[in-house]
Design a protein around this nucleic acid. Structure first.
Lengths: 191, 191
DNA sequence: GTCTATAATGGGATAGAC
DNA sequence: GTCTATCCCATTATAGAC
């Protein structure tokens, strides 16, 4: 595998486990087995690396959301898939979504990274809003508020649930936090 | 005001705005107008300062929760007060709850701080669980799941809603995220 | 593309005078 | 309790050989 990809993978895991300050070029160098000066050949500055990181992450993430939307199923099915995506990302409570980690400490982030972060939230809210519009139409779940509000609540819930799960290093904390939302979905794929 | 209190106030604001790495002794020194070496007289290490910070914060926070519980009103009223507490803490989307900020980057935190953080979550969940037990009894809101699950969902929601609000520097994002939960509460204090 | 060597900065922390 | 002066270390980044 290319050094560049190895660096991105290693850095992504580090940020999701320990935050943007949670890794250094020295750490990366040790992990993939080169000297830290060599990293600057691939990413001149840490900010460059950060931008490449979030661009790669967002592309992969919304690719998965597209797959969910393209699949057959009710809005409830798709919301279940969305929740599973966030749950699986936890990796036993060791790490959270890249954008949850970056949102947490917005300091020391370049404007370009902040823009990508905003984009992630906007796109997520848009995707969820469409989902809740469909839910309203197909009746696969009960709504308490307008689709925009339900979308915002769902995003806040999964992000908060990831924080709690990592805080306790216990993925079942995520399940506990999302149980009430699951209960509102018409049963198609019980587990 | 004593130097010690000034330091704690200044540090708390910094952590809640920018995270645990978001301030240095040099920053604090500049802000309150002493030299950074003098800070070590009050807090020998940054870890010591962190512990004092979270102890002070937790005490004040649960004091407020106690006031809410002691006040008259239904479970729905108390949940509304709880939500308002988190909303007001946002300060126009500039900062989040201290423990949300610390949860975000669990790295570089001493074990003693992590213990206080766990305590915060446990106590919060316990307080909310009792609240939802009361809600079940007084019928002031509709439950979708057992009180433990509702408590966990509520905590995840407010923490996530704070993250989203700060990410967009817009406190109305918090309102949007909590609208659906508000809609489940029997109307006593509409706004 | 990777290396060695070397800035240059900023962080937390200590000693000792006042 | 606050100061000056200093230390030690980690981190990002650069220059130039291979």
């Amino acid at each position: 595998m290319s050094t560049r990809i190895s660096l991105l993978q290693s850095a992504e895991q580090a940020v999701r486990q320990r935050g943007y300050h949670g890794f250094s070029y020295a750490d990366l160098a040790r992990e993939i087995g080169i000297r830290k000066a060599s990293i600057h050949h691939h990413f001149p500055t840490k900010a460059d690396l950060g931008i490449a990181l979030i661009e790669r992450y967002n592309a992969a993430f919304f690719d998965q959301l597209k797959n969910i939307k393209d699949a057959e199923g009710t809005a409830a099915d798709q919301l279940r898939a969305y929740l599973r995506l966030y749950r699986d990302a936890l990796d036993n409570g060791e790490q959270v979504c890249l954008c949850v980690s970056l949102s947490a400490g917005r300091d020391h982030l370049s404007n370009e990274i902040l823009d990508h972060l905003d984009q992630f939230h906007r796109d997520s809210l848009h995707w969820l809003e469409q989902l809740f519009e469909r839910a309203k139409a197909d009746g696969s779940m009960s709504l308490h508020a307008a689709p925009e509000a339900e979308a915002s609540a769902a995003l806040a819930l999964v992000e908060g649930a990831q924080l709690l799960a990592r805080a306790s290093r216990d993925v079942t904390q995520f399940d506990q936090s999302t149980r009430a939302l699951h209960a509102r979905l018409s049963p198609n794929k019980p587990h």
